[in-house]
């Protein structure tokens, strides 16, 4: 009995620290979201649901959510397809695999802001090499950062360049840990590479796929530093994601209370969205093996 009490005594400081670090900021944000704290109204002055009512009809917020969802969906889709393809390519290449594993980690290790600056130079309409390269193939120059669709594509290209390696590493690790028996069985059944991929590799990799996708969806949805450095949300509002919009509302305009309500709303939408996505994916992956 005494021993068990000691156990709690030692446990409590860590728990309290954890609560203070995780729970307190969240509760404080909720409190802020019900306040009118702004540049000229300081403090937790209660405004009820006013901020949420405004948020619901704020077109800029919903537009930024739409931009974010489209951007994230495309980023993660490309990263998954490319990362998985690369992992399959290097799966059984022992020596090359080691080299490329190290090589592919490099983009992930670079600070996004720095890379955005480098990419901005690469995509620069007159000074950057990208249009020169296109010119070699007879393709006319593209206004990468000054027209809406190319600017949107540029953000995706940078994110895919930086984070495909994350999917690659996870998928490669997953492939290397797969059991041999299903492959032997497929071979005996006369399955070719495509059938083996569809009916053996893909279903076996489903749990890792789900984990990788959810992690990337969470990370991509916070896309802010690249946007900040590369496009400032422009041209127009074409690359304004929710995180960037929250930054502008909160720290440039100093609408602290309102931004807190947008953050909470954003958090709820993300939690619901990710839960629905994870559930749907789990269901799909349960179906996939039975189809086989």
């Amino acid at each position: 009995m005494l021993q068990s009490r000691y156990k709690y005594v030692f446990l409590w400081p860590a728990l309290i620290a954890l609560l203070a670090v995780i729970i307190f900021p969240l509760i404080y944000t909720v409190l802020l979201s019900f306040s009118g704290w702004s540049v000229n109204r300081i403090g937790l002055n209660w405004v009820g649901w006013a901020n949420y009512a405004r948020a619901i009809i704020d077109p800029r917020f919903w537009q930024s959510m739409g931009t974010l969802y489209t951007m994230v969906a495309l980023c993660v889709l490309f990263e998954y397809v490319l990362g998985f393809a690369l992992a399959l390519l290097l799966w059984k290449q022992a020596r090359a695999g080691r080299f490329f594993r190290v090589l592919f980690i490099v983009p992930m290790c670079v600070t996004p802001v720095i890379m955005a600056v480098v990419w901005r130079t690469i995509f620069h309409e007159t000074l950057g090499p990208m249009n020169d390269v296109l010119g070699w193939f007879g393709i006319p120059p593209v206004n990468w950062l000054s027209t809406t669709t190319p600017a949107f594509a540029t953000v995706i290209i940078i994110d895919v360049w930086q984070w495909t390696s994350f999917i690659f590493i996870l998928m490669l690790a997953g492939l290397m840990s797969l059991p041999h028996e299903p492959f032997e069985a497929a071979q005996i059944d006369g399955a070719g590479p495509i059938r083996t991929f569809i009916h053996v590799i893909f279903p076996l990799m489903a749990p890792i796929t789900l984990g990788a996708l959810v992690i990337r969806l969470i990370e991509s949805s916070k896309l802010m530093d690249t946007i900040y450095t590369l496009t400032s949300g422009g041209p127009g509002s074409s690359t304004e994601t929710t995180s960037y919009m929250l930054y502008i509302r909160g720290l440039r305009e100093f609408q602290i209370g309102y931004t807190a309500s947008l953050s909470i709303l954003y958090l709820i939408i993300m939690l619901v969205g990710l839960t629905v996505f994870a559930k749907a994916m789990t269901r799909m992956m349960r179906i996939a093996p039975s189809a086989h």
């Binding site: 540049v39 027209t147 809406t148 041209p235 127009g236 509002s237 074409s238 440039r252 305009e253 100093f254």
Partner: peptide, 23 residues
Amino acid sequence: VPGVNQYYTAMMNGVAKAMAGEM
């Protein structure tokens, strides 16, 4: 005036949309 950043960012949000041909 107080809140000038709110006024200016709102203004430039609209101006940026016009400059980009969105509106």
